[in-house]
Simulated scan of single mutants.
Amino acid sequence: MSKKINEKIQSIIKQCESLSNDDIESLPNYKKFKVFYSKKSHKTCDIYLLCAFIFGLLAIFTTSISYIGIEHVLYYSYDRIFSINIYHEECLAPKLETLIDIFRPITSCDICQHIDHIERISNITREEFEEKYAYTNHPVIITDAMNDWLALENFNYEFFKRIYRTNSSALRGVEDNCQFFPYKNKDEFETLGDVFNMDFDRAHMIDDDYKPWYVGWSNCDYSTAYLLRQYYSRPYFLPERSESSKLDWIFMGTPGFGAHMHIDNVDLPSWQAQVRGRKQWTLRPAPECFHICKELTFIVEPGEIIILNTNVWYHKTSVVSEDEISITIGSEFD
């Protein structure tokens, strides 16, 4: 039996040896095999090229580290990729808002499905505010809570420039321990000190072709907080057992600029008092509520306070004053 099989194999081999290239190419499965082998060869080649490219980058990177130094390589990489200055950041992990959005808790659409405008109210009791607005995630504007605030007359660019003067404890507190948001001006304002060192004409919008600016920062220096709170008082409508955060947030800038659309990652709802200028707000529901809830756009006028949970509402702002900078101060409350 094995002898017959061997003879058959030898016969097939002789037939194959007698075939010309034309005979082989005329076989039905030759073209399929050729296409398959060509694709496989290309894929293999692409993989080799990709590996060579990666190893080349690694070689350049490791050579750069040994030649330039790890500190300079990190500085350049973070500056180019994340726009982070490693000398001014305590944490080198970039704050990627896209990732924060992806992993945030799902929002209940009950908070926004019946809201089609922002109410403006006054003379509200603490009990009514607590029941309807304080913890319901229902945004509202209070129009009469700043009537006796000295901030309305005293807060301006020069006032804050004096407080956050060069080498002051207030400025060091912000630059060492607090948050600073330069928004669209991040290429020119690395610290709050840069804001108060800008050209006088630009700061006060003297030239018609001035370059707009808008910044925000938290104040976590207790002595500075005590000084600021001599110019404003606790909003009367906050529930009696509620405590405001010891942290002040201040936002200031010229017409045309503001904060981009985002959602915050803070602990509590907040109030923001519009001390100077006019600011347009846009509130957008979470993506899972687009089919139920409406986007809201409105303007907060000087002397008004908006109450908003920025952890559940996406929001952006834009200063819309014609000839005045916007100054807003606010705080969280529990």
Score class of each variant (00 low, 15 high):
Thr107Glu: 13
Thr107Asn: 07
Ser108Asp: 15
Cys109Gln: 02
Asp110Leu: 12
Asp110Tyr: 11
Asp110Thr: 07
Ile111His: 06
Ile111Leu: 03
Cys112Ala: 05
Cys112Asn: 04
Cys112Met: 01
Gln113Val: 09
Gln113Ser: 10
His114Leu: 05
His114Arg: 02
Ile115Pro: 02
Ile115Asn: 01
Ile115Trp: 01
Asp116Asn: 14
His117Ala: 14
Ile118His: 05
Glu119Lys: 15
Glu119Tyr: 14
Glu119Met: 15
Glu119His: 15
Arg120Asn: 11
Arg120Val: 11
Arg120Leu: 09
Arg120Pro: 02
Ile121Arg: 07
Ile121Lys: 05
Ser122Asp: 06
Asn123Tyr: 04
Ile124Arg: 02
Thr125Leu: 12
Thr125Cys: 15
Arg126Trp: 07
Glu127Ser: 13
Glu127Trp: 10
Glu128Gln: 14
Glu128Arg: 13
Glu128Ser: 14
Glu128Tyr: 13
Phe129Ser: 09
Phe129Ala: 11
Phe129Gln: 10
Glu131Leu: 13
Lys132His: 02
Lys132Trp: 02
Lys132Gln: 01
Tyr133Pro: 05
Ala134Leu: 07
Tyr135Asp: 13
Thr136Ile: 10
Asn137Glu: 04
Asn137Ser: 14
Asn137Met: 05
His138Cys: 09
Pro139Asp: 08
Pro139Lys: 08
Pro139Met: 11
Val140Cys: 12
Ile142Pro: 03
Ile142Met: 08
Thr143Gln: 12
Thr143Ile: 10
Asp144Val: 04
Asp144Gly: 03
Ala145Ile: 05
Met146Tyr: 06
Met146Arg: 09
Met146Glu: 11
Asn147Phe: 07
Asn147Lys: 14
Asp148Glu: 15
Asp148Lys: 15
Leu150His: 14
Ala151Leu: 09
Leu152Pro: 01
Glu153Asn: 15
Glu153Met: 07
Glu153Val: 05
Asn154Asp: 10
Phe155Glu: 04
Phe155Asp: 04
Asn156Gln: 00
Phe160Gly: 06
Lys161Trp: 03
Arg162Leu: 01
Ile163Asn: 00
Tyr164Trp: 06
Tyr164Ser: 00
Thr166Arg: 00
Asn167His: 00
Asn167Arg: 02
Ser168Met: 04
Ser168Asp: 01
Ser168Asn: 05
Ala170Gln: 02
Arg172Cys: 07
Arg172Thr: 05
Arg172Pro: 01
Gly173Trp: 02
Val174Arg: 05
Val174Phe: 06
Glu175Gly: 00
Glu175Asn: 04
Glu175Asp: 05
Asn177His: 11
Asn177Tyr: 12
Cys178Ser: 15
Gln179Tyr: 14
Phe181Gly: 11
Phe181Pro: 01
Pro182Thr: 06
Pro182Asp: 09
Pro182Trp: 03
Tyr183Leu: 10
Lys184Asn: 13
Asn185Glu: 09
Asn185Pro: 09
Lys186Met: 09
Lys186Pro: 00
Asp187Tyr: 05
Asp187Ala: 07
Asp187Phe: 02
Phe189Ile: 07
Glu190Phe: 13
Leu192Arg: 14
Leu192Thr: 08
Leu192Lys: 13
